[in-house]
Design a protein around this nucleic acid. Structure first.
Lengths: 195, 195, 195, 195
DNA sequence: TATGAATGAGTTTTCATTCAT
DNA sequence: TATGAATGAAAACTCATTCAT
C-alpha cells in the first residue's frame, strides 16, 4: 500500500491550487469534448474551468496533450473497471461485467465515447503506457473466461479494442431509451459465447 | 408517373459536363473524407476533383450539403445492398448477407465508415428521404428473418442503425488483417440469432 | 530581350490583380519592417496593403516566407546596383560607387537596413539563390579594383557582407544629418585603399 | 559628497543575497540576449538564473528596465576600456586600443553586440547617465589623437556610436575565423588616419 | 521575501465562403 | 459558367506581467 500518486510518479507534486486547477481543466475538457467531440475548443475549456487560456497551456503544452490526457483517463477508468470485475467469482460474469460496466460508463459519459474519435495518433500515443495495463487486466478476464469454456476461444484480447469501439459507437448512435443499447450489448455478449 | 430523377425530384437535369463535374466532386469528397474524416477541407476536395472551389459551391451551397450528399450516397448504397439481398431465398442468409455486404463495403471504403462521424445533424437530415427507403428495405429482410424464427424477435429495424454504426466503428478500429473484423461480424451475427 | 518575368521564372504568371496585390503586400511589408523591425506584424502589413490577412497568407505561407521575400528583394536591389556600377570606367570608382549607392539606398529605406536583423535563418536561406548573383557581381568589381591596385589585396568578396552589415548598422545608428553617415562611409572607403 | 554608489545613487545598498540574485539575473540575461537577441524571454532568464520570474520583477520593474541595465553595463565596460587606454602613452595607440579592445569584447560576448539591437528607446534612455561618462572618456582619447595629428580631424566623438555599432554588426555578421573581423577593424582604423 | 502559477491581450495561422475576372 | 483570389471571423498558441502561496 504505497503512500500515493502511483498514477503519475515522475512528476513532482503540484501545489495544491495548481492541482485543483488541473483537475478543473481536465473535468471541463471532458464535458466540452462530450458535447462537441473533435470540435472542442481550448477557449471553451478554459472558460468552463473558470481559468484563463494561459493556465490550460501551462498544464498542457497543446491541444493534443490535453486530448491525450483525456484518452489516458478513459483507459485508466476502463482498467479500474476491469480490475474490479476480476473479483467476480464466475469467469463469464467477470468478463461480461467488464463489458457491461464499460458500456454503462460510456452511456453515462459522452466524453468516454467521443474521446477516441477526437483523439489523433499523438494523443493516443500519449496514453500508450496505461494501455498496457488495461491490456493485461482484460487479458486476465478473457483467459479465465476461455478456460471456463464460456467465451469463444477465437475471441482474443486484440479484439477487445474493436468490440468496445463498436459498442461505444453503437451507444452513441442509439437514441433513447437506455433499454435499447442495453439490449444490443446483451446481443453482442451472446455472440461471444461458444457456438 | 415520370420515370426520371425520382431520387432528387426538385432538380432539373444538369448538362452533361455539369453532371460530370458533380460526380468528380462527390467522388473526390469521398476520398478526402475517407482519409481525413472531419478534418476534410473543401479546397482539398476541389483540387482532387480538378475543379475550382467555386464550382464545388455551385453544386453544393455549403460544406454541410456536400457532407449530406455523401451520407445520402452511403444510405443509397446500403439500400441497394439490402434490395439485392432481398432476392436471396433463405431469410437468415438474406439478412446476414445484408450485414456482411455492408461491412464489406465499409471495410473497403473508409469514407463509408467515416462519413457518419464527419456529418453533423444538418447533413444527416439532408439524407432523411432516402433513409426511409433503407428503413423499408431493411425492415423487409428483418421481418422475413423474424418470421422464419432465425432472428431474435427483440431485434428491430430501429436497432439496425446502432448495429451498423457499431460495426463500422469496430472495423475502423481493427488493425489488419481483414480476417479479424470478419470474425467480429460473425460474432455479432451469432448474437442476433435466437437464444 | 525575353518577354517578361525573368525574376521568378518557375511560378506561373499570377492574374493581374493577384500580382498587384502581391506587390502591395510586399511594399507594405517593407514599410512596416522599416518602422518596427522584428516586431512587424502580419495584421499591420495586411491593413497597410489594404487586403485581408488571408490574402497575405495566400501569397506567403507564413511570416518567415514574407521576410524571406524582403531579404530577397534587398539582395536583388544590391545586385542591380552592383551591375550598374560595373559600367563605370574607373575600377575604384566602380567599387566605391557600389558601396556608396548601397549605403544611399540603406539610408533612404529603413527596411533595407532592418530586414537583415528581422530575418531569421529560414528567411535568409530563402534568398540564397539570388545571393549567389550578388556575390558574382560584387566579385567582379572587387577583382577589377584589385587588379588596378586601388583596393587593398587583403579585402575579399567574403568581407563584403560584414562591410555592408556594418555600414547599415552605422547608418541606422547615426542621427541626422545625412552628412554624418556619408563621412563615415568615406572613412571606410579610405580604409580599403592600400596602405 | 559621499564616495560610494556613484553609479546608482538612488538605490540603498541591497542585502548580500539580494545583490547576488541581481547579479545572477543580469548575468543570465546577458547570456540569453546573446543567444536570442530581441526574442529573449524573461522566463528563460529566470530559469537560467535559477530564480523565479517574480524575483526578476522584484529587481527590474519590467523587461525594458532589464534590457536597459544590460545596455548600461555595456556602456560601463566600454568606459572602463576607454579609461584603461587613457594610460597608453602614444595618442594613436590609445585611441586604436580603445577600438580594438572594445571589438575584442564584442567578439567574445554576443550580448555585447546584440544588446543594442534588442534594446528599445526606453532601455537606451535608462543608460543615458553612464553614456555621458563614456562620451567624456572617449572624447579625451579622441582629442589627444587629434592633437597629435594621427586621427583625421573630421572624425568626432559623435561618430563613435556609429563606428562601434557598425563594427559590432560587422563582427556579428562575420563568420569565423577571428582573423577576418580583426582585419576589418584594422581597415576601419586605417580609414580614420588622416588622408 | 521568493516562488512559480495564473492571467489575458495580442499574435500567428486556418478555412468556409464570397466575388471579381 | 468556371475559376481561384480575396475575405475575415475564429482558433491555437505566446509571453510580459501580476498575485496567491
Amino acid at each position: 500500500m504505497s503512500t500515493a500518486a502511483s498514477t503519475t510518479p515522475t512528476e513532482r507534486p503540484l501545489r495544491a491550487d495548481a492541482r485543483r486547477n488541473r483537475e478543473k481543466i481536465v473535468s471541463a475538457a471532458r464535458q466540452i469534448v462530450g458535447e462537441h467531440g473533435e470540435a472542442a475548443q481550448i477557449d471553451d475549456v478554459a472558460r468552463l474551468a473558470g481559468v484563463g487560456v494561459g493556465t490550460v497551456y501551462r498544464h498542457f503544452p497543446n491541444k493534443e496533450a490535453l486530448m491525450g490526457e483525456l484518452v489516458r483517463m478513459c483507459v485508466v477508468e476502463c482498467t479500474a473497471i476491469a480490475e474490479q470485475c476480476a473479483s467476480i467469482e464466475d469467469p463469464w460474469d467477470a468478463f461480461a461485467g467488464m463489458v457491461r460496466s464499460s458500456c454503462e460508463r460510456m452511456a453515462a459519459d459522452a466524453a468516454m465515447r467521443r474521446t477516441w474519435q477526437a483523439a489523433d495518433d499523438a494523443a493516443v500515443a500519449y496514453a500508450a503506457p496505461v494501455k498496457a495495463e488495461l491490456h493485461d487486466a482484460a487479458e486476465l478476464l478473457i483467459r479465465r473466461a476461455h478456460e471456463s469454456g464460456e467465451l469463444r476461444p477465437d475471441f482474443t484480447v486484440d479484439d477487445m479494442g474493436g468490440l468496445m469501439c463498436g459498442l461505444g459507437a453503437a451507444i452513441d448512435a442509439m437514441p433513447e431509451p437506455d433499454e435499447r443499447w442495453r439490449r444490443l450489448v446483451e446481443f453482442a455478449l451472446d455472440g461471444l459465447k461458444p457456438h
